[in-house]
Design a binder for these strands. Structure first.
Lengths: 191, 191
DNA sequence: AGCCTAAAGCACAGTCCTTGCGTTAGCGGT
DNA sequence: ACCGCTAACGCAAGGACTGTGCTTTAGGCT
């Protein structure tokens, strides 16, 4: 079962979903994730727990839904005039947002309550979308650069891997280094 | 609180931990993850639920512990005579193991019940260890290749990212391609 | 305007979580 | 080798959470 909700806007369902999502975000900030329970969220949202159980099934699936919504980029990547600057700026901002405690928590939540990998795929699609915008702009300028898959492999994947598995010592310099190495910086590879 | 157990071997604690871990692995295979509950594991392991709650706190932290134990490589990477072959073989095997349904489940469990990122770091350390063995062997042969961090960024991270976020269409060819590109294959990067 | 369906509320039963207290195993000291 | 001491386990009970059958309501559709 996909957890993403497809409710028509304006109806009661939409109101319930919105108020539940809001309740989750508020309670996450106020009391932290450990303190969250379905009944607590239900009370804050002004619904009964059974409503949440029926629509989301599990607290984790609900959290996953909220997380994906929160991880959706709300703005197009900034235009700095050339591909490399755009990628660098985007990577720095991405890493900065995702490295924060709440950012990591959202990523983990998105991965967590996600039986069929649907929500995780959505997160990846968001990043790919942003990168596509950057690459398309570069193509319009006449620059020719890597394709999306390469950027995902060389920039996004390493950042995400470290965020998830080795969160210590991550900073903007790492993001810049990845971009530099992608652009033919002296990669240490090769034999 | 770190969930990793530091019990002395031979004592009662060690016996309890072993029987609980075994119970988890057995029940995971028999009934699947959804059916797992703390009381169920406790019954199979021959302990009381409160013991599990006290030592692990949560089913997820327990699962995380078991997952990390299971993700530990039990054998040194094969020696194929040269660095590139070693890396390719290792990457193929790694991807194959991790792409399986149970492999992905273990990875997610390891990430999941892991408040301070301790278990996730351990997983990453396992991979780094294996790669270090491969690189050390290459150095002994007189080959000079990339350093560990580069291999983590270029091989491990992309595979893990796709396993977690885009599990569709992953195969050995992808692993080979990553190694090829690392070894100066025509990377599509650069402007 | 009225029907009809999907979703929410209500209530209750079953399970799980959590903790206080007593007991025990086994480590360390003499 | 014995004995005290501490950390860990078992037991039991209270409270909270999960999940479901049935009823009610909102709002889309003709």
């Amino acid at each position: 079962m996909s957890t993403r909700q497809r409710v028509r806007p304006g109806g009661r369902s939409a109101r319930v979903q919105a108020s539940v999502h809001t309740a989750v975000r508020e309670l996450l900030e106020e009391r932290g994730r450990e303190a969250l329970t379905v009944p607590l969220v239900a009370q804050r949202a002004g619904v009964t727990p059974s409503t949440i159980y029926r629509r989301w099934g599990t607290l984790q699936e609900l959290l996953s839904d909220v997380a994906v919504e929160r991880l959706r980029p709300d703005t197009a990547p900034e235009d700095h005039g050339d591909l490399r600057s755009d990628l660098t700026a985007w990577a720095e901002q991405f890493l900065d947002e995702m490295t924060s405690a709440s950012g990591r928590a959202y990523i983990r939540d998105a991965l967590l309550g996600d039986p069929d990998g649907d929500n995780a795929g959505q997160c990846s699609a968001y990043a790919a979308e942003q990168i596509n915008v950057i690459l398309a702009r570069a193509a319009d300028r006449g620059e020719h650069g890597p394709d999306v898959e390469t950027v995902m492999d060389r920039i996004v994947a390493p950042m995400m891997y470290r965020i998830l598995f080795r969160p210590a010592g991550l900073d903007a310099a790492y993001a810049r280094r990845l971009v530099t190495e992608l652009f033919g910086g002296r990669g240490k590879g090769g034999q």
